[in-house]
């Protein structure tokens, strides 16, 4: 039973409602990501890690504190503070413990505070999953599964796009379309392809 929920949440967040191609979150790193696939992997690993922890923490905060005390209206300011301090904490922890991990993943952490995908997923959990009657553990489980799926979807698209960028840079693009415009059109075509996956569930 719970595995079905997990698989459904992951597939729907990763492929059907892809975070970049259909929710438009995290466009900046998507367009700015270098054509090195190592950078793409490091960036998406950092995003996945922070996204899972932050959605668990923000869901808990909302359900057990903000809703209980009748102050759900401060959710935005509370969430951005939670995410920002989480990013700082994780960065400090990695800096102190492992140099090689910092080299591959930690350098992308400071950029994540202003990455709208993280806050977007936390806010989306509240509006899409949370209801007054849902038990805390069940909601937390769905929220974390959605976060895992969203992070994986982010990584999938960023990685695929870094390979496409490599091809694009080598091909003969008209001067007016070079850079961002052609990237956006390519993203549009990728998005069209992902529309076809809507019938899976």
């Amino acid at each position: 039973m719970s595995f079905t929920i997990f698989a459904t949440a992951i597939i729907s967040a990763m492929l059907i409602n892809n975070v970049i191609l259909s929710q438009f979150l995290g466009i900046c790193p998507f367009l700015g990501v270098s054509k090195k696939s190592s950078a793409a992997i490091g960036m998406s690993a950092a995003v996945l890690f922070v996204m899972v922890i932050s959605s668990a923490v923000t869901y808990t905060l909302y359900d057990l504190v903000l809703y209980q005390y009748g102050i759900p209206y401060i959710s935005t300011i509370a969430f951005i503070l939670v995410i920002a301090s989480l990013v700082q904490f994780v960065e400090m922890f990695i800096k102190k413990t492992s140099k090689s991990l910092y080299k591959s993943l930690g350098i992308y952490l400071p950029l994540i505070t202003t990455n709208c995908a993280i806050l977007g997923v936390s806010e989306g959990n509240i509006t899409n999953i949370w209801t007054e009657t849902m038990p805390y553990w069940e909601g937390l489980f769905i929220a974390v599964s959605t976060a895992v799926g969203t992070g994986l979807g982010f990584g999938l698209i960023i990685f695929a796009f870094s390979s496409i960028r490599e091809k694009l840079d080598a091909s003969n693009v008209p001067a007016a379309w070079k850079g961002v415009p052609i990237s956006l059109v390519v993203a549009g075509i990728m998005s069209l392809a992902f529309l076809g996956l809507a019938g899976i569930i």
Binding site: G32, S34, P110, T114
Partner: peptide
Amino acid sequence: AATCTACH
């Protein structure tokens, strides 16, 4: 170099 990959 990493800063260059985000919108900052």
